[in-house]
Design a protein around this nucleic acid. Sequence first.
DNA 1: CGGTTGTCTGATACTCAGTATCGTATAGGT
DNA 2: ACCTATACGATACTGAGTATCAGACAACCG
Lengths: 221, 221
Amino acid sequence: MPERTVKDRLIEAAFTLFEERGYERTTVDDITERAGVSRATFFRTFRSKEDVIFPDHDAVLTAIRSRLAGSTQQTALVAVCEAARLVLLHYIGEGELALSRYRLTRTFPALRDREIASTLQYQRVFREFIHDWMGGEEDTALRAELMAAAVVTAHNYVLRRWLRGQTDAPEAEFDAAMASTVDLFAEPGSTTGPGSIVVFRTSQDLDAVLPALRGILGDPA
Amino acid sequence: MPERTVKDRLIEAAFTLFEERGYERTTVDDITERAGVSRATFFRTFRSKEDVIFPDHDAVLTAIRSRLAGSTQQTALVAVCEAARLVLLHYIGEGELALSRYRLTRTFPALRDREIASTLQYQRVFREFIHDWMGGEEDTALRAELMAAAVVTAHNYVLRRWLRGQTDAPEAEFDAAMASTVDLFAEPGSTTGPGSIVVFRTSQDLDAVLPALRGILGDPA
DNA sequence: CGGTTGTCTGATACTCAGTATCGTATAGGT
DNA sequence: ACCTATACGATACTGAGTATCAGACAACCG
């Protein structure tokens, strides 16, 4: 295990100081001093003081994009849900860092705004992907936007519950939330028109769920 | 005709200069000089340089709250839609100011983030109101959040179309968008238990898609 | 009318985030 | 051993935002 990178040292120093003195009362000089690097290095590593709070944002955004890119027409909705799940899992993987960030964003409105804005970057990626998936026509633009907003909202809902310590099974809750969310956009009655079937993570045997499937589809012929 | 207030002069000076030189290349000193007031007065009138871009935000937020407050259990959903309409009408009433703001938010990411954050303040008010309307129980929290997100998303969709000059009848489009949005929540979503299956618009015969279905599921047994 | 009080304003000095640009050390390749 | 990339430190600068002082001006009150 090589020595920790400058970036990691800065992140740890920043979060430690933010917890001790609060975000506003911690200067960049304080952070760099504790991390043992120069001030210039901080701004080479992070674009701004706020950025150190969300160090992996760009990486997560890239992960989302590549997850979506590797999907077919048939698996598009699954891809969106799993991309959202990727974000959730990243936060959970951060552990204490994510919890500390949550405390900070609750305390300083500017940071909360920043987090909201980054969340909506995910939403934008989802929206564009879903819209393309729908064919990119103008008459589906609103629907695509609503779907993207719903997916992100459901994700945020579960994430917030986990951050607050209100759940020990965030993944299961995520699946449930995502299922009921995607359900909003289902059209159970119509078996006409172009469309596709999306299967959303079942552990049950296929035959066990077929009756329900036929029921929803309208049991053709 | 009374003379325009300091606040109005600052707003006009700011938008004029932002259009001329761009947001970043305009300093607060430039604005105050053009408005004929001191720098201190600017920061007494607006909390920050960004705030001058959204001068009526607090007023709109207050208007939303009072519109929601004056609603009964029966008219709750109508109240939410009309509160959202209030926001739309405010933007339209601003006219050129709203268009100028849109141009600025497109060119400067920090301003766009700021606008997004303020939009989500509306969403939060809606969410809390809807959740209370639903009874405030935990099992409706996600649904309330999804509804609030959907209403705001639909509003933003129509607003953006108007800002881009893509519609001459924003109110009619708003009504249509809001109708289809509320429609999403008309029927409670039907899931088939844990690890649920979501069916999404198919025109194909069930047997035709079964191979793909089994493939996604991992073809048990 | 004179005095008081509260509010609005200008002026000044300060902190700190963020940018720009310099010089330097060091790892890696030839 | 020489060259070149990149990474880092140091310094100076711009500009946002804060704090504080002092003066102008109205309203109110005795």
